Amino acid sequence: MIWYIARGAGVMALVLLTVSLTLGIATRQGKPLAGLPRFAIATVHRNASLIGLGLVLVHVLTLLFDSYADLNPIDLLVPFVGSYQPFWLGLGTLAFDLLLIVLVTSLNRARLGLRTWRAIHWAAYAIWPIALAHALGTGTDAAQVWMGVLAVACTTTVATAVTWRFVT
């Protein structure tokens, strides 16, 4: 049961972080998207980020109790030290650490100033491909057709948003 919760939370976190990254790219452009005002897109972006982070926490914390993964608390914070698939797990840990940095700095955006916050917030561009690589490298569903389709859909969505941002 724990394994299914961890897997489901991880997959849904990837989907929501894809939505968040895509909408973050869209709001940065400053133009309305699909006729929606910028504040609406920003609100969905923020909520998708927070729900995605919550799902990442569920994913990580449930794996602490999974005997197969055999993780300890240090594996959740220090990349590449775990005994279970250290490289792929380390990518997930790295993405988690970067996600926490983006969260903490976003919560302190007013204290940091816009320029500093924006520079740190660019880490979100790194988080997404690292998390995708983690999902495909360590995920038990990586060989399943549905996961391949999901990975292609997420990649296409992000690639389209990045292309749109640099073309317009």
Rank of each mutant, 00 (worst) to 15 (best):
A135D: 08
W122V: 14
H59E: 08
S83R: 12
G52F: 03
D141W: 12
L89C: 04
T22R: 00
G82L: 01
A26Q: 04
R7K: 14
L91W: 03
N47Y: 13
L57S: 07
A126W: 11
Q29C: 06
A123Q: 09
V102T: 11
L107M: 13
F96K: 00
W128E: 03
F87C: 04
A133P: 00
L89V: 07
L33E: 01
V11L: 14
S83F: 10
I120H: 01
A161D: 06
I25Y: 03
V15H: 02
R115S: 12
A42I: 07
G54T: 07
G24A: 08
A6T: 05
I130Q: 03
P32L: 07
T156G: 15
A34D: 03
V56H: 01
Y84S: 10
S106L: 08
V58L: 12
L91Y: 03
D97Y: 02
Q29T: 09
L23I: 07
W128S: 04
L33D: 01
G35A: 07
G30R: 05
V145R: 12
V11P: 01
S106Y: 07
L89W: 11
N47T: 09
Y4S: 14
W128M: 08
G139E: 10
L100Y: 04
T22W: 05
F80I: 09
G137Y: 06
N108F: 13
V19R: 00
T138I: 14
W122Q: 09
V19I: 14
V102Y: 02
R118C: 02
T138P: 04
A123T: 11
A131K: 00
D141H: 12
T105K: 01
A159K: 02
S83G: 14
T18W: 01
A34Y: 12
G139S: 10
T93D: 11
F65G: 15
L76E: 11
F166W: 13
A6F: 06
V60F: 08
T156P: 00
N47P: 00
L71G: 06
A42P: 00
T163S: 12
Y68N: 10
L64S: 08
A123G: 13
D75S: 10
L100H: 04
V44R: 02
V152Y: 09
V58G: 03
H121E: 08
R28E: 12
K31F: 07
G54S: 13
V102M: 07
T156Y: 13
Q29M: 13
C154A: 15
T160V: 13
P79A: 13
A119P: 03
W164K: 04
N108L: 15
A26E: 01
L100N: 10
A135R: 00
G137Q: 08
T43K: 12
S83I: 08
H134K: 04
G35F: 09
S49R: 02
L17Y: 09
K31E: 11
V152Q: 04
W3Q: 13
A159L: 15
L55H: 04
T160D: 06
L98M: 15
G137P: 11
